[in-house]
Structures are given as C-alpha cells and as structure tokens.
Computed example of a mutant assay.
Amino acid sequence: MSSAHSFVVTGASGGVGSAIAEHLSSIGHVINLDPTPARSANPRVHHVEGDAGDPAAAAAAAQLAEKHGPLSGWVNNAAIFRDASLATATAEQISALIALNLNLAVVGCHTAVQHFLSHSRPGSIVNVSSHQAQRPVRGALPYATAKAAVEGLTRAAAVDHGPQGIRVNAVALGSITTARYEEYRREHPEADQQMAALHPLGHVGHPLDVAHAVAFLLSAESAFITGAVLPVDGGRAALGPDPESA
C-alpha cells in the first residue's frame, strides 16, 4: 500500500485501537472514529467524534478518509464491555447488550462495503474479535456472544463481497496489555502468574502485536486471505487444561 491510502479505525482513542491507528499512519492517513477525544498528536491520525454504531458518524469518517486518500481499509475495533447474566438480567437486557456490540461491526462493515462499491474499488475490512468467541470466560456472556456473531459476520461478508474484491477478516485477541488490563492487574495481584499460564507463550500480548496482524490483513501481502479469523492470542485459544499438570 502506498502512503496515498487512508483507513478508518473505530475506537482508536486508546488501547489496541490507538496502536493500530498509529501503526497504520506509517503507510497512510487514519481516521479514528471514537466518542472520546483523540490522544494522538500524529498529524496523519485524524479524529471524528462519534459512535461507531451510528451510521451517520461512520459515513462522516469514510468521507473524511477519502479526502486524505482513497479509503482502502476499515478496522472495526470499537467494543463495549458490559456483562449480564441469564440468572440475574432480563432477556431484553442481555439481547440489548449483544446488539450494542454486534452493531458496531455491522455498521462498520456496511459503511465500508457501501463506500468501496460506490467507488468501484476493492478494499479490506478487519473485525476485532476475541478468543471468547470460541472459548468464553464466565461472566462475559453478552460480549462472548456478540464476538461469535462478529466472526459469523466476517465469514458471510467475505463470501458475499469477494467477487467485488472486498476482503473481510478478523483477529481474535487474547489478553493484551491495555489500560483496562492494567487496571485488572492492580485489582488482582495474582494476574501475571495466571495470565502466563493461560497463554502458551507465557505472557500476554502487546497492542503492537495486534497492530502488526491487522496491517498484514489490510495489505496486499494477504491478498488471497478472506473470511479468516486469525488468532492473535499467544496460543490461548489452543490451550486445553492438562489434568496432570498439578
């Protein structure tokens, strides 16, 4: 990809999204669609204040990206972390939480596909998923369900729009050292040892690990990859508990 290209990354005011945006800025202009103020002073990272689940805000991000260069990649990174239990919440509350997270990816995919088609241009979409789509942890039912649906969306969109040269893939993350993770570490002194045991590589990932994987899936180097879910999890999803390990 040349520096003339542009990208949209949702939820890029912090955490993994920020790392993705900063990394992609080395090869093009990046639009961060996020309701919170942008933290980047990078002149190639631009901010659109808005909800990634709002079609009007997503369209505005696409339009701004196009002003800086042909929009060639869209990353659906924004997520909502709110849990609810089948035992204590209503079905309506749980369904609403699932819809909130899933809608972020649906709106992003819809906006990107519409933009690529209207410009008769191939493009690439990367959805950020989680190891929980396949192996949930207790207490995260709405999030895990939404991410499983995002992976289904990834495959279906890839099948539907492959003939137009639009590729759709996902990255399924393990634990990553974001501010949210660091807060968890402060509250749980045993976290480092537990997380090392959960990831076969012996440690959690860094935001730049995710950024590199996303950039690969957006690039011509992955031109024959679509409908794939790439684990970026240090082997966490592959690990099964060993009853003899104790």
Rank of each mutant, 00 (worst) to 15 (best):
M1G: 08
M1A: 10
S6V: 07
F7C: 07
V8K: 09
V9G: 08
T10G: 10
T10I: 06
A12T: 11
A12C: 11
A12S: 14
G14L: 15
G15A: 08
V16P: 00
G17M: 12
G17H: 11
S18A: 15
A19W: 07
I20K: 11
I20R: 09
E22G: 13
E22F: 10
L24C: 08
L24G: 06
S26K: 13
S26L: 12
D34N: 08
D34C: 10
D34W: 06
D34R: 04
T36K: 15
S40K: 10
N42L: 02
R44N: 09
V45P: 07
G50C: 05
A52E: 04
A52Q: 02
A57P: 09
A59V: 10
A62S: 12
K67E: 13
H68F: 12
G69V: 01
P70Q: 13
L71I: 10
N76I: 02
N76M: 07
A78Q: 04
I80H: 15
F81R: 14
R82K: 14
A87I: 09
A87E: 14
T90A: 07
A91N: 14
A91L: 15
I94A: 00
A96M: 12
A96R: 11
I98M: 05
L104W: 03
A105C: 06
V106A: 10
V107G: 04
V107P: 04
G108C: 07
H110W: 10
A112Y: 04
H119P: 08
H119F: 11
S124L: 00
V126N: 03
V126H: 05
N127V: 03
S130G: 03
P136H: 07
L141K: 03
A144D: 02
A144T: 06
A144Y: 06
A148M: 04
V150D: 03
L153H: 01
V159D: 11
D160R: 02
H161D: 02
V168C: 06
N169Y: 00
A172W: 03
G174Q: 05
A179V: 05
Y181D: 11
Y181S: 09
E187R: 15
P189K: 11
E190D: 15
M195V: 15
M195Q: 15
A196I: 08
H199K: 08
P200A: 09
L201N: 13
L201S: 11
V204F: 06
G205S: 10
G205R: 02
L208M: 14
V210Q: 04
A211E: 04
A211W: 00
V214Q: 02
A215W: 02
F216K: 00
E221C: 06
T226H: 01
G227V: 00
A228W: 07
V229I: 12
P231I: 05
P231Q: 05
V232D: 00
V232K: 01
V232Q: 01
G235W: 08
A238H: 10
L239K: 12
P241M: 03
P241L: 02
D242A: 06
P243M: 04
P243S: 01
